[in-house]
Design a protein around this nucleic acid. Structure first.
Lengths: 253, 253
DNA sequence: GTAATAGTGTCTTTAAGACATTATGGA
DNA sequence: TCCATAATGTCTTAAAGACACTATTAC
Protein backbone atom coordinates (compact mmCIF):
# COMPACT_ATOMS: atom_id res chain seq x y z
CA UNK A 1 0.00 0.00 0.00
CA UNK A 2 1.13 3.54 -0.29
CA UNK A 3 1.03 3.77 3.44
CA UNK A 4 3.66 1.88 5.30
CA UNK A 5 2.77 0.28 8.56
CA UNK A 6 4.99 0.86 11.54
CA UNK A 7 7.44 -1.89 10.81
CA UNK A 8 8.52 0.03 7.76
CA UNK A 9 9.78 3.52 8.18
CA UNK A 10 10.69 5.51 5.18
CA UNK A 11 13.38 7.61 6.77
CA UNK A 12 15.28 4.82 8.40
CA UNK A 13 15.15 1.92 6.01
CA UNK A 14 14.19 3.07 2.58
CA UNK A 15 16.44 5.19 0.41
CA UNK A 16 14.77 7.92 -1.55
CA UNK A 17 14.11 7.96 -5.26
CA UNK A 18 14.26 10.71 -7.78
CA UNK A 19 11.05 10.97 -9.76
CA UNK A 20 11.07 12.40 -13.25
CA UNK A 21 8.80 12.66 -16.26
CA UNK A 22 9.87 11.79 -19.79
CA UNK A 23 7.86 12.96 -22.78
CA UNK A 24 7.33 11.46 -26.18
CA UNK A 25 6.00 14.48 -28.06
CA UNK A 26 4.67 13.62 -31.50
CA UNK A 27 3.66 15.67 -34.48
CA UNK A 28 3.30 15.11 -38.21
CA UNK A 29 6.03 16.67 -40.34
CA UNK A 30 6.36 16.17 -44.08
CA UNK A 31 3.77 13.43 -43.92
CA UNK A 32 5.72 11.40 -41.39
CA UNK A 33 5.35 10.85 -37.68
CA UNK A 34 8.00 12.90 -35.88
CA UNK A 35 9.19 12.98 -32.29
CA UNK A 36 11.00 15.68 -30.35
CA UNK A 37 14.47 14.73 -29.07
CA UNK A 38 17.14 16.69 -27.22
CA UNK A 39 20.86 16.16 -27.62
CA UNK A 40 22.73 15.32 -24.47
CA UNK A 41 25.75 17.45 -23.62
CA UNK A 42 26.91 15.72 -20.47
CA UNK A 43 27.73 12.20 -19.47
CA UNK A 44 26.35 9.68 -19.38
CA UNK A 45 25.26 9.29 -23.00
CA UNK A 46 26.89 12.57 -24.07
CA UNK A 47 26.15 13.09 -27.75
CA UNK A 48 23.20 10.72 -27.65
CA UNK A 49 19.63 11.90 -28.01
CA UNK A 50 17.01 11.70 -25.31
CA UNK A 51 13.34 12.32 -24.78
CA UNK A 52 12.73 15.68 -23.12
CA UNK A 53 11.79 15.60 -19.48
CA UNK A 54 12.75 16.66 -16.01
CA UNK A 55 12.17 16.38 -12.32
CA UNK A 56 8.77 16.36 -10.70
CA UNK A 57 8.68 19.29 -8.29
CA UNK A 58 7.51 18.90 -4.69
CA UNK A 59 4.13 20.53 -5.28
CA UNK A 60 3.35 18.87 -8.61
CA UNK A 61 1.85 15.62 -9.70
CA UNK A 62 3.43 13.89 -12.66
CA UNK A 63 0.95 15.21 -15.20
CA UNK A 64 1.47 18.80 -14.11
CA UNK A 65 5.21 18.33 -14.36
CA UNK A 66 4.78 16.89 -17.83
CA UNK A 67 2.75 19.89 -18.99
CA UNK A 68 5.34 22.25 -17.57
CA UNK A 69 8.21 20.45 -19.25
CA UNK A 70 6.28 20.38 -22.48
CA UNK A 71 5.92 24.14 -22.49
CA UNK A 72 9.53 24.65 -21.46
CA UNK A 73 10.98 22.32 -24.04
CA UNK A 74 8.86 23.30 -26.98
CA UNK A 75 8.72 27.01 -26.21
CA UNK A 76 4.99 26.85 -26.89
CA UNK A 77 2.95 28.56 -24.24
CA UNK A 78 -0.56 27.74 -25.24
CA UNK A 79 -0.12 24.11 -26.20
CA UNK A 80 -3.05 22.95 -28.30
CA UNK A 81 -2.95 19.24 -28.06
CA UNK A 82 -3.24 16.21 -25.91
CA UNK A 83 -1.10 14.77 -23.14
CA UNK A 84 -1.55 11.54 -21.26
CA UNK A 85 0.41 9.22 -19.05
CA UNK A 86 2.05 6.28 -20.81
CA UNK A 87 3.60 4.11 -18.11
CA UNK A 88 6.33 4.17 -15.50
CA UNK A 89 9.87 2.92 -16.07
CA UNK A 90 11.72 1.91 -12.95
CA UNK A 91 14.56 -0.51 -13.68
CA UNK A 92 17.13 -0.01 -10.91
CA UNK A 93 20.00 0.58 -13.33
CA UNK A 94 18.23 2.71 -15.89
CA UNK A 95 20.29 5.74 -14.89
CA UNK A 96 23.87 4.97 -13.81
CA UNK A 97 24.10 7.99 -11.51
CA UNK A 98 21.19 7.49 -9.20
CA UNK A 99 17.92 5.72 -8.63
CA UNK A 100 15.43 7.41 -10.93
CA UNK A 101 11.85 6.39 -11.55
CA UNK A 102 10.36 8.00 -14.61
CA UNK A 103 6.68 8.49 -15.35
CA UNK A 104 6.59 8.61 -19.13
CA UNK A 105 3.94 10.61 -20.98
CA UNK A 106 2.80 10.91 -24.57
CA UNK A 107 1.82 14.21 -26.17
CA UNK A 108 0.57 15.11 -29.64
CA UNK A 109 0.03 18.38 -31.42
CA UNK A 110 -0.29 19.80 -34.89
CA UNK A 111 2.17 22.24 -36.32
CA UNK A 112 4.65 22.47 -33.53
CA UNK A 113 7.43 24.85 -34.55
CA UNK A 114 11.06 23.86 -34.75
CA UNK A 115 12.11 24.18 -31.12
CA UNK A 116 15.04 26.22 -29.84
CA UNK A 117 14.07 29.90 -29.72
CA UNK A 118 13.39 30.71 -26.11
CA UNK A 119 13.11 27.10 -25.24
CA UNK A 120 14.88 25.24 -22.55
CA UNK A 121 16.61 22.81 -24.80
CA UNK A 122 19.15 24.27 -27.15
CA UNK A 123 19.95 21.08 -29.03
CA UNK A 124 16.39 19.99 -29.60
CA UNK A 125 14.93 18.94 -32.94
CA UNK A 126 12.28 16.84 -34.58
CA UNK A 127 13.19 13.40 -35.85
CA UNK A 128 11.18 11.17 -38.09
CA UNK A 129 10.25 8.25 -35.85
CA UNK A 130 11.06 5.80 -38.62
CA UNK A 131 14.64 7.07 -38.61
CA UNK A 132 14.88 6.63 -34.85
CA UNK A 133 13.12 3.29 -34.53
CA UNK A 134 13.79 1.30 -37.68
CA UNK A 135 10.97 -1.11 -38.50
CA UNK A 136 11.44 -4.81 -38.95
CA UNK A 137 12.70 -4.85 -42.52
CA UNK A 138 13.98 -1.31 -42.33
CA UNK A 139 17.55 -0.23 -42.23
CA UNK A 140 18.56 2.42 -39.78
CA UNK A 141 19.04 5.67 -41.64
CA UNK A 142 22.55 7.07 -41.96
CA UNK A 143 21.85 9.82 -39.45
CA UNK A 144 19.98 7.56 -37.07
CA UNK A 145 20.42 8.97 -33.59
CA UNK A 146 21.38 6.80 -30.67
CA UNK A 147 18.86 7.03 -27.87
CA UNK A 148 20.02 7.44 -24.29
CA UNK A 149 18.93 5.34 -21.32
CA UNK A 150 15.81 3.24 -21.91
CA UNK A 151 14.33 5.84 -24.20
CA UNK A 152 14.16 3.53 -27.20
CA UNK A 153 11.85 1.29 -25.19
CA UNK A 154 9.76 4.25 -24.06
CA UNK A 155 9.50 5.57 -27.61
CA UNK A 156 8.49 2.16 -28.93
CA UNK A 157 5.77 1.90 -26.30
CA UNK A 158 4.63 5.45 -27.01
CA UNK A 159 4.31 4.81 -30.72
CA UNK A 160 2.33 1.66 -30.13
CA UNK A 161 0.05 3.62 -27.80
CA UNK A 162 -0.83 6.21 -30.40
CA UNK A 163 -1.19 3.61 -33.12
CA UNK A 164 -3.73 1.81 -30.98
CA UNK A 165 -5.54 4.95 -29.88
CA UNK A 166 -6.06 6.11 -33.46
CA UNK A 167 -8.23 3.05 -33.85
CA UNK A 168 -10.81 3.69 -31.19
CA UNK A 169 -10.58 7.42 -30.47
CA UNK A 170 -10.68 10.66 -32.42
CA UNK A 171 -7.09 11.33 -31.39
CA UNK A 172 -6.03 12.01 -34.97
CA UNK A 173 -7.84 15.34 -34.66
CA UNK A 174 -5.11 16.49 -32.26
CA UNK A 175 -2.60 16.25 -35.09
CA UNK A 176 -4.36 18.64 -37.47
CA UNK A 177 -5.06 22.37 -37.18
CA UNK A 178 -8.59 23.61 -37.76
CA UNK A 179 -10.05 23.85 -40.24
CA UNK A 180 -8.73 20.72 -41.86
CA UNK A 181 -9.53 18.55 -44.86
CA UNK A 182 -10.27 14.86 -44.86
CA UNK A 183 -7.18 14.12 -46.96
CA UNK A 184 -5.13 15.90 -44.27
CA UNK A 185 -6.75 13.82 -41.60
CA UNK A 186 -6.16 10.68 -43.60
CA UNK A 187 -2.47 11.55 -43.89
CA UNK A 188 -2.30 11.43 -40.09
CA UNK A 189 -3.45 7.83 -40.10
CA UNK A 190 -1.07 7.05 -42.92
CA UNK A 191 1.88 8.53 -41.08
CA UNK A 192 1.14 6.89 -37.75
CA UNK A 193 0.21 3.48 -39.10
CA UNK A 194 2.74 3.46 -41.89
CA UNK A 195 0.13 2.46 -44.43
CA UNK A 196 -2.86 4.37 -45.75
CA UNK A 197 -6.42 3.38 -44.91
CA UNK A 198 -8.57 2.80 -47.97
CA UNK A 199 -9.80 6.15 -49.23
CA UNK A 200 -13.46 5.39 -49.61
CA UNK A 201 -13.74 3.34 -46.47
CA UNK A 202 -11.93 6.03 -44.50
CA UNK A 203 -14.38 8.71 -45.56
CA UNK A 204 -17.33 6.45 -44.90
CA UNK A 205 -16.07 5.80 -41.38
CA UNK A 206 -15.18 9.38 -40.47
CA UNK A 207 -18.33 10.92 -41.93
CA UNK A 208 -20.49 8.08 -40.63
CA UNK A 209 -19.29 8.36 -37.04
CA UNK A 210 -21.54 10.83 -35.26
CA UNK A 211 -19.65 13.85 -34.00
CA UNK A 212 -16.27 12.92 -35.42
CA UNK A 213 -16.06 15.92 -37.76
CA UNK A 214 -18.34 18.82 -38.64
CA UNK A 215 -18.51 20.30 -42.14
CA UNK A 216 -17.83 24.01 -42.47
CA UNK A 217 -18.80 26.70 -44.96
CA UNK A 218 -15.26 28.01 -45.10
CA UNK A 219 -13.90 28.82 -48.49
CA UNK A 220 -11.93 26.02 -50.05
CA UNK A 221 -8.16 26.27 -49.81
CA UNK A 222 -5.93 26.31 -52.84
CA UNK A 223 -4.58 22.93 -53.77
CA UNK A 224 -1.59 21.93 -51.68
CA UNK A 225 1.33 21.07 -53.90
CA UNK A 226 0.76 23.95 -56.32
CA UNK A 227 -0.30 21.32 -58.80
CA UNK A 228 -3.89 20.94 -59.88
CA UNK A 229 -6.51 18.78 -58.29
CA UNK A 230 -9.93 19.23 -56.85
CA UNK A 231 -9.90 21.32 -53.66
CA UNK A 232 -10.96 19.48 -50.56
CA UNK A 233 -13.80 20.50 -48.28
CA UNK A 234 -13.00 21.88 -44.86
CA UNK A 235 -14.06 20.42 -41.52
CA UNK A 236 -13.76 21.12 -37.83
CA UNK A 237 -13.58 18.63 -35.00
CA UNK A 238 -16.81 17.29 -33.58
CA UNK A 239 -17.56 16.48 -29.96
CA UNK A 240 -17.06 12.74 -30.19
CA UNK A 241 -13.97 11.29 -28.53
CA UNK A 242 -14.52 7.60 -29.16
CA UNK A 243 -14.93 5.74 -32.41
CA UNK A 244 -17.02 2.66 -32.07
CA UNK A 245 -16.72 0.25 -33.67
CA UNK A 246 -13.09 1.19 -34.09
CA UNK A 247 -11.38 1.99 -37.35
CA UNK A 248 -8.94 -0.88 -37.73
CA UNK A 249 -5.49 -0.32 -39.14
CA UNK A 250 -4.89 -2.17 -42.38
CA UNK A 251 -3.30 -5.61 -42.14
CA UNK A 252 0.48 -5.77 -42.35
CA UNK A 253 2.09 -5.70 -45.73
CA UNK B 1 14.38 13.64 -19.15
CA UNK B 2 15.45 11.14 -16.59
CA UNK B 3 18.86 12.67 -16.64
CA UNK B 4 19.18 16.10 -15.17
CA UNK B 5 21.62 18.51 -16.71
CA UNK B 6 24.00 20.33 -14.51
CA UNK B 7 21.70 23.15 -13.59
CA UNK B 8 19.61 20.65 -11.73
CA UNK B 9 21.17 18.59 -9.05
CA UNK B 10 19.17 16.00 -7.30
CA UNK B 11 20.91 16.16 -3.95
CA UNK B 12 20.84 19.89 -3.52
CA UNK B 13 17.52 21.04 -4.91
CA UNK B 14 15.12 18.19 -5.21
CA UNK B 15 13.61 16.47 -2.23
CA UNK B 16 13.31 12.73 -2.43
CA UNK B 17 10.16 10.74 -2.99
CA UNK B 18 9.02 7.48 -1.58
CA UNK B 19 8.01 5.04 -4.31
CA UNK B 20 5.48 2.32 -3.61
CA UNK B 21 3.37 -0.18 -5.47
CA UNK B 22 -0.35 -0.66 -4.91
CA UNK B 23 -2.14 -3.76 -6.12
CA UNK B 24 -5.67 -4.34 -7.27
CA UNK B 25 -5.86 -8.15 -7.05
CA UNK B 26 -9.00 -9.57 -8.60
CA UNK B 27 -10.62 -12.96 -8.53
CA UNK B 28 -14.10 -14.34 -9.07
CA UNK B 29 -15.92 -15.41 -5.92
CA UNK B 30 -19.53 -16.57 -5.82
CA UNK B 31 -19.99 -15.42 -9.38
CA UNK B 32 -18.94 -11.86 -8.62
CA UNK B 33 -15.78 -9.90 -9.22
CA UNK B 34 -13.87 -9.61 -5.95
CA UNK B 35 -10.88 -7.55 -4.89
CA UNK B 36 -8.43 -8.06 -2.03
CA UNK B 37 -8.37 -5.31 0.60
CA UNK B 38 -6.47 -4.91 3.86
CA UNK B 39 -7.80 -3.16 6.93
CA UNK B 40 -5.71 -0.29 8.19
CA UNK B 41 -4.75 -0.36 11.85
CA UNK B 42 -2.88 2.92 12.08
CA UNK B 43 -3.56 6.50 11.17
CA UNK B 44 -4.21 7.96 8.76
CA UNK B 45 -7.36 6.20 7.66
CA UNK B 46 -7.33 3.79 10.61
CA UNK B 47 -10.24 1.40 10.21
CA UNK B 48 -10.51 2.09 6.51
CA UNK B 49 -9.63 -0.47 3.87
CA UNK B 50 -6.76 -0.16 1.43
CA UNK B 51 -5.29 -1.92 -1.55
CA UNK B 52 -2.33 -4.07 -0.55
CA UNK B 53 1.07 -2.74 -1.45
CA UNK B 54 4.41 -1.59 -0.14
CA UNK B 55 7.70 0.06 -0.83
CA UNK B 56 9.81 -0.57 -3.86
CA UNK B 57 13.18 -1.82 -2.62
CA UNK B 58 16.45 -0.36 -3.87
CA UNK B 59 17.28 -3.29 -6.11
CA UNK B 60 13.80 -3.83 -7.54
CA UNK B 61 11.83 -2.38 -10.35
CA UNK B 62 8.16 -1.70 -9.72
CA UNK B 63 6.94 -4.92 -11.30
CA UNK B 64 9.26 -7.06 -9.20
CA UNK B 65 8.09 -5.26 -6.09
CA UNK B 66 4.49 -5.87 -7.10
CA UNK B 67 5.09 -9.61 -7.53
CA UNK B 68 6.79 -9.76 -4.15
CA UNK B 69 3.99 -7.92 -2.41
CA UNK B 70 1.48 -10.12 -4.14
CA UNK B 71 3.06 -13.24 -2.71
CA UNK B 72 3.46 -11.70 0.71
CA UNK B 73 -0.07 -10.42 0.95
CA UNK B 74 -1.86 -13.40 -0.46
CA UNK B 75 0.34 -16.02 1.12
CA UNK B 76 0.42 -17.76 -2.25
CA UNK B 77 3.90 -18.76 -3.30
CA UNK B 78 3.35 -20.02 -6.80
CA UNK B 79 0.97 -17.41 -8.05
CA UNK B 80 -0.81 -18.65 -11.16
CA UNK B 81 -2.10 -15.58 -12.82
CA UNK B 82 -1.35 -12.35 -14.46
CA UNK B 83 0.10 -9.06 -13.25
CA UNK B 84 0.55 -5.82 -15.16
CA UNK B 85 1.19 -2.19 -14.49
CA UNK B 86 -1.90 0.01 -14.38
CA UNK B 87 -0.70 3.60 -14.00
CA UNK B 88 1.08 5.85 -11.56
CA UNK B 89 -0.65 8.04 -8.99
CA UNK B 90 1.33 11.03 -7.82
CA UNK B 91 -0.89 13.77 -6.40
CA UNK B 92 1.25 15.69 -3.90
CA UNK B 93 -1.24 15.30 -1.06
CA UNK B 94 -2.28 11.71 -1.65
CA UNK B 95 -0.56 10.63 1.57
CA UNK B 96 -0.65 13.20 4.37
CA UNK B 97 2.56 11.97 5.95
CA UNK B 98 5.02 12.21 3.11
CA UNK B 99 5.47 12.53 -0.59
CA UNK B 100 4.62 9.12 -2.02
CA UNK B 101 4.38 8.17 -5.67
CA UNK B 102 2.61 4.89 -6.24
CA UNK B 103 2.91 2.67 -9.28
CA UNK B 104 -0.40 0.79 -9.28
CA UNK B 105 -0.69 -2.71 -10.70
CA UNK B 106 -3.53 -5.05 -11.57
CA UNK B 107 -3.42 -8.78 -10.91
CA UNK B 108 -5.90 -11.59 -11.57
CA UNK B 109 -6.05 -15.18 -10.52
CA UNK B 110 -8.53 -18.01 -10.13
CA UNK B 111 -9.31 -19.59 -6.82
CA UNK B 112 -7.22 -17.50 -4.52
CA UNK B 113 -7.74 -18.68 -0.96
CA UNK B 114 -9.05 -16.50 1.81
CA UNK B 115 -5.90 -14.66 2.88
CA UNK B 116 -4.55 -14.49 6.41
CA UNK B 117 -2.77 -17.75 7.24
CA UNK B 118 0.92 -17.07 7.02
CA UNK B 119 0.34 -13.93 5.07
CA UNK B 120 1.62 -10.50 5.76
CA UNK B 121 -1.73 -8.90 6.19
CA UNK B 122 -3.76 -10.06 9.12
CA UNK B 123 -6.88 -8.05 8.38
CA UNK B 124 -7.10 -8.91 4.72
CA UNK B 125 -10.19 -10.20 2.97
CA UNK B 126 -11.98 -10.37 -0.35
CA UNK B 127 -14.70 -7.87 -1.12
CA UNK B 128 -17.19 -7.93 -3.92
CA UNK B 129 -16.18 -5.00 -6.09
CA UNK B 130 -19.81 -3.98 -6.48
CA UNK B 131 -20.01 -3.51 -2.73
CA UNK B 132 -16.90 -1.36 -2.73
CA UNK B 133 -17.61 0.70 -5.83
CA UNK B 134 -21.36 1.10 -6.15
CA UNK B 135 -22.48 1.45 -9.74
CA UNK B 136 -24.48 4.37 -11.02
CA UNK B 137 -27.94 3.26 -9.94
CA UNK B 138 -26.60 1.07 -7.17
CA UNK B 139 -26.81 1.77 -3.52
CA UNK B 140 -23.76 1.22 -1.41
CA UNK B 141 -24.19 -2.00 0.51
CA UNK B 142 -24.65 -1.82 4.26
CA UNK B 143 -21.14 -3.11 4.92
CA UNK B 144 -19.54 -1.00 2.23
CA UNK B 145 -15.95 -0.36 3.27
CA UNK B 146 -14.42 3.08 3.11
CA UNK B 147 -11.32 3.13 0.96
CA UNK B 148 -8.21 4.91 2.14
CA UNK B 149 -6.19 7.48 0.19
CA UNK B 150 -6.94 7.59 -3.53
CA UNK B 151 -7.61 3.87 -3.64
CA UNK B 152 -11.20 4.27 -4.84
CA UNK B 153 -9.85 6.00 -7.92
CA UNK B 154 -7.21 3.31 -8.44
CA UNK B 155 -9.77 0.55 -8.05
CA UNK B 156 -12.13 2.24 -10.50
CA UNK B 157 -9.34 2.51 -13.06
CA UNK B 158 -8.30 -1.08 -12.43
CA UNK B 159 -11.80 -2.40 -12.98
CA UNK B 160 -12.13 -0.46 -16.20
CA UNK B 161 -8.81 -1.90 -17.33
CA UNK B 162 -9.89 -5.49 -16.90
CA UNK B 163 -13.31 -4.81 -18.40
CA UNK B 164 -11.60 -3.48 -21.49
CA UNK B 165 -9.00 -6.22 -21.66
CA UNK B 166 -11.60 -8.97 -21.56
CA UNK B 167 -12.75 -7.64 -24.90
CA UNK B 168 -9.59 -8.01 -26.91
CA UNK B 169 -7.49 -10.53 -24.98
CA UNK B 170 -7.89 -14.03 -23.56
CA UNK B 171 -7.44 -12.59 -20.08
CA UNK B 172 -10.57 -14.29 -18.80
CA UNK B 173 -8.59 -17.53 -18.85
CA UNK B 174 -6.55 -16.22 -15.93
CA UNK B 175 -9.69 -16.27 -13.80
CA UNK B 176 -10.49 -19.96 -14.23
CA UNK B 177 -8.60 -23.05 -13.13
CA UNK B 178 -7.91 -25.79 -15.68
CA UNK B 179 -9.71 -27.69 -16.84
CA UNK B 180 -12.69 -25.40 -17.11
CA UNK B 181 -16.08 -25.38 -18.78
CA UNK B 182 -17.42 -22.77 -21.15
CA UNK B 183 -20.21 -21.84 -18.74
CA UNK B 184 -17.51 -21.20 -16.13
CA UNK B 185 -15.63 -19.01 -18.55
CA UNK B 186 -18.80 -17.19 -19.46
CA UNK B 187 -19.45 -16.47 -15.81
CA UNK B 188 -16.16 -14.59 -15.71
CA UNK B 189 -17.38 -12.24 -18.41
CA UNK B 190 -20.70 -11.90 -16.64
CA UNK B 191 -19.05 -11.03 -13.35
CA UNK B 192 -16.59 -8.54 -14.79
CA UNK B 193 -18.98 -6.84 -17.18
CA UNK B 194 -21.99 -7.02 -14.93
CA UNK B 195 -24.14 -8.46 -17.70
CA UNK B 196 -23.93 -11.82 -19.45
CA UNK B 197 -22.84 -12.12 -23.06
CA UNK B 198 -25.37 -13.93 -25.24
CA UNK B 199 -24.89 -17.67 -24.77
CA UNK B 200 -24.78 -18.75 -28.38
CA UNK B 201 -22.74 -15.82 -29.59
CA UNK B 202 -20.28 -16.31 -26.74
CA UNK B 203 -19.65 -19.93 -27.66
CA UNK B 204 -19.34 -19.08 -31.32
CA UNK B 205 -16.74 -16.45 -30.53
CA UNK B 206 -14.68 -18.50 -28.08
CA UNK B 207 -14.71 -21.68 -30.15
CA UNK B 208 -14.25 -19.77 -33.39
CA UNK B 209 -11.18 -17.86 -32.22
CA UNK B 210 -8.14 -19.96 -33.08
CA UNK B 211 -6.19 -20.99 -30.01
CA UNK B 212 -8.53 -19.48 -27.43
CA UNK B 213 -9.46 -22.81 -25.84
CA UNK B 214 -8.62 -26.46 -26.51
CA UNK B 215 -11.11 -29.27 -25.95
CA UNK B 216 -10.06 -32.06 -23.61
CA UNK B 217 -10.98 -35.72 -23.21
CA UNK B 218 -11.34 -35.33 -19.48
CA UNK B 219 -14.36 -36.92 -17.90
CA UNK B 220 -17.24 -34.56 -17.45
CA UNK B 221 -17.69 -33.10 -14.01
CA UNK B 222 -20.79 -33.56 -11.94
CA UNK B 223 -23.25 -30.75 -12.25
CA UNK B 224 -22.40 -27.77 -10.08
CA UNK B 225 -25.31 -26.93 -7.85
CA UNK B 226 -26.22 -30.53 -7.09
CA UNK B 227 -29.29 -29.93 -9.21
CA UNK B 228 -29.77 -31.55 -12.58
CA UNK B 229 -28.61 -30.26 -15.89
CA UNK B 230 -26.45 -31.46 -18.71
CA UNK B 231 -22.77 -31.71 -17.72
CA UNK B 232 -20.49 -29.29 -19.53
CA UNK B 233 -17.48 -30.25 -21.62
CA UNK B 234 -14.03 -29.45 -20.32
CA UNK B 235 -11.42 -27.24 -21.97
CA UNK B 236 -7.90 -26.00 -21.40
CA UNK B 237 -6.43 -22.69 -22.43
CA UNK B 238 -5.03 -22.34 -25.91
CA UNK B 239 -1.97 -20.39 -26.95
CA UNK B 240 -3.77 -17.31 -28.24
CA UNK B 241 -3.49 -14.13 -26.19
CA UNK B 242 -5.42 -11.73 -28.40
CA UNK B 243 -9.00 -11.90 -29.60
CA UNK B 244 -9.51 -10.19 -32.88
CA UNK B 245 -11.96 -8.86 -33.73
CA UNK B 246 -12.70 -8.28 -30.07
CA UNK B 247 -15.64 -9.67 -28.15
CA UNK B 248 -17.65 -6.58 -27.33
CA UNK B 249 -19.39 -6.23 -24.00
CA UNK B 250 -23.15 -5.97 -24.28
CA UNK B 251 -24.64 -2.51 -24.48
CA UNK B 252 -25.67 -0.90 -21.21
CA UNK B 253 -29.01 -1.78 -19.73
C1' DG C 1 -42.44 -37.11 -16.82
C1' DT C 2 -40.31 -32.03 -15.21
C1' DA C 3 -36.76 -28.85 -14.13
C1' DA C 4 -32.29 -27.38 -14.98
C1' DT C 5 -28.42 -26.65 -17.38
C1' DA C 6 -25.47 -27.31 -21.81
C1' DG C 7 -25.09 -27.05 -26.56
C1' DT C 8 -26.52 -26.09 -31.76
C1' DG C 9 -28.60 -23.76 -35.69
C1' DT C 10 -30.33 -19.94 -38.33
C1' DC C 11 -32.03 -15.57 -39.89
C1' DT C 12 -31.07 -10.67 -39.78
C1' DT C 13 -28.30 -6.64 -39.48
C1' DT C 14 -24.12 -4.06 -39.29
C1' DA C 15 -20.08 -2.72 -41.05
C1' DA C 16 -15.77 -3.46 -43.20
C1' DG C 17 -12.95 -4.81 -47.64
C1' DA C 18 -12.17 -3.95 -52.24
C1' DC C 19 -12.70 -1.88 -55.62
C1' DA C 20 -14.80 1.24 -59.98
C1' DT C 21 -16.56 5.55 -61.12
C1' DT C 22 -17.53 10.47 -61.15
C1' DA C 23 -16.35 15.47 -59.87
C1' DT C 24 -13.59 19.64 -59.81
C1' DG C 25 -9.87 22.25 -59.95
C1' DG C 26 -5.03 24.10 -62.31
C1' DA C 27 -1.55 24.16 -66.16
C1' DT D 1 -7.73 18.66 -72.87
C1' DC D 2 -4.91 16.45 -69.69
C1' DC D 3 -3.40 15.65 -65.13
C1' DA D 4 -3.97 15.50 -60.34
C1' DT D 5 -6.52 15.21 -56.53
C1' DA D 6 -11.19 14.80 -54.11
C1' DA D 7 -15.48 12.61 -53.59
C1' DT D 8 -19.07 9.02 -54.27
C1' DG D 9 -21.16 4.54 -55.15
C1' DT D 10 -21.61 -0.46 -55.14
C1' DC D 11 -20.89 -5.33 -54.62
C1' DT D 12 -19.04 -8.75 -51.55
C1' DT D 13 -17.78 -10.72 -47.23
C1' DA D 14 -17.07 -11.08 -42.26
C1' DA D 15 -19.02 -11.15 -38.07
C1' DA D 16 -22.11 -9.79 -34.49
C1' DG D 17 -27.18 -9.60 -32.59
C1' DA D 18 -31.14 -11.98 -31.47
C1' DC D 19 -33.23 -15.57 -31.10
C1' DA D 20 -35.46 -20.61 -31.38
C1' DC D 21 -34.46 -25.07 -30.82
C1' DT D 22 -32.35 -29.61 -29.32
C1' DA D 23 -29.52 -32.51 -25.84
C1' DT D 24 -28.34 -34.55 -21.45
C1' DT D 25 -28.40 -34.93 -16.81
C1' DA D 26 -30.90 -35.33 -11.71
C1' DC D 27 -35.05 -35.86 -9.42
Amino acid sequence: MSTPENRRTYTSEHPPFAVTVDLAVFTIRDGALAVLLVERGAEPYAGSWALPGGFVEPDEDAETAAWRELREETGVDRFEGHLEQLRTYSAPDRDPRMRVVSVAHVAFAPDLPEPSAGSDAAGARWWAVDDVLPGQADQAGPDAPVLAFDHAEILTDARERIRAKLEYTTLALDFVAEPFTLPELRRVYTAVWGTPPDLGNFRRKVLGTDGFVVATDDPRPGSPGGAGGRPALLYRRGTATEVQPPMLRPALG
